[in-house]
């Protein structure tokens, strides 16, 4: 029963990792831009929910607002700063986004202190779900449900809409997108905001589960990289499979060897790289 519990936990965690990684992935897919500030957006999402619930704002409003605010800030950053550096080598993309991540992290400490805190799930979901012997927190079930709905919506957005077509075409060739007569500058901003918003949402959803602290952004960045390395950058399916895999491995290992759970994620990544250098889905 403990394994079933951890398996379900792992699915929830994995879906959050998926949200995080798919955001990173679509930004890279369209913009060929590695966003080292991706963890910072996750951090910000978590802290916004924390702040709002501390001020007595309804949790649901916070959950809705946090990713929207994060996406807005990201759009602003893209429009003011990032689009000026797309033409530079990757080194400078990394330098700028590492700088941004540091600034966000320090701002979080200035605004909310270095210690962090806890976020209570809303009263409606405060209880547990019972099915025979299986007892499970309702909030975590809600996270799984919501992320599944989001995953389907995102799939539709990427596969079934014009924006999705542009994102996928953009990862092939930017010229082609310009030929289609689409305002690529605005699409860039929108996609960056979307990717960052997904990270913000992942942070907001994670806050009631794991609490908030200023360094959760760095950890999230590392996880997102692992998921993308395993699943393949720019691949929706890859992010989904790898996200779930990483989440489940971490959860199940948490029972077997609590201290080593996070270590196992990285060990697993090493094994994948060793046996399948191109990742699970084998794209270049």
């Amino acid at each position: 029963m403990i394994y079933l519990f951890q398996l379900v936990n792992g699915i929830g965690l994995g879906m959050l990792y998926f949200l995080l990684a798919v955001g990173l992935s679509i930004i890279f897919g369209l913009l060929h831009f590695v966003n080292f500030a991706h963890g910072a957006f996750y951090l910000l999402g978590a802290y916004l929910v924390y702040d709002m619930t501390e001020r007595g704002v309804n949790f649901w409003a916070g959950l809705l607002l946090a990713p929207v605010v994060v996406a807005g800030l990201a759009a602003l950053t893209e429009a003011v700063l990032l689009r000026r550096i797309y033409h530079l080598p990757h080194t400078f993309h990394i330098l700028v986004t590492v700088g941004l991540a540091l600034m966000v992290q320090e701002l979080v400490i200035i605004l909310w202190g270095p210690v962090g805190g806890n976020v209570s799930p809303p009263d409606v979901l405060g209880g547990v779900f019972m099915l025979g012997d299986f007892i499970y927190p309702q909030y975590r079930l809600f996270v799984i449900g919501l992320t599944l709905v989001l995953a389907i919506g995102l799939w539709w957005l990427l596969e079934g809409t014009r924006l999705g077509a542009v994102v996928r075409a953009g990862s092939e060739s930017t010229d082609m997108v310009s030929l289609l007569g689409i305002d690529i500058v605005r699409v860039n901003t929108a996609v960056f905001a979307l990717g960052a918003g997904l990270a913000g949402l992942a942070g907001a959803l994670a806050a009631p589960i794991r609490g908030v602290e200023p360094f959760m952004g760095v950890e999230a960045l590392g996880i997102a990289f692992v998921v993308v390395v395993i699943g393949g950058m720019g691949s929706y399916t890859g992010a989904l499979i790898a996200g779930l895999l990483v989440g489940i491995v971490q959860s199940v290992m948490a029972t077997l060897w609590p201290e080593g759970a996070r270590l196992m994620i990285y060990l697993g990544m090493g094994l994948v790289i060793l046996t399948m250098p191109r990742g699970l889905l084998g794209r270049a």
């Binding site: 000026r84 550096i85 400078f92 700028v96 320090e106 200035i110």
Partner: peptide, 16 residues
């Protein structure tokens, strides 16, 4: 103590 904020800004300046 929050000097890393300035360092972050400096990195952006260096890149630009």
């Amino acid at each position: 103590p929050r000097w890393l904020l300035l360092l972050g800004g400096l990195l952006v300046v260096v890149a630009l």
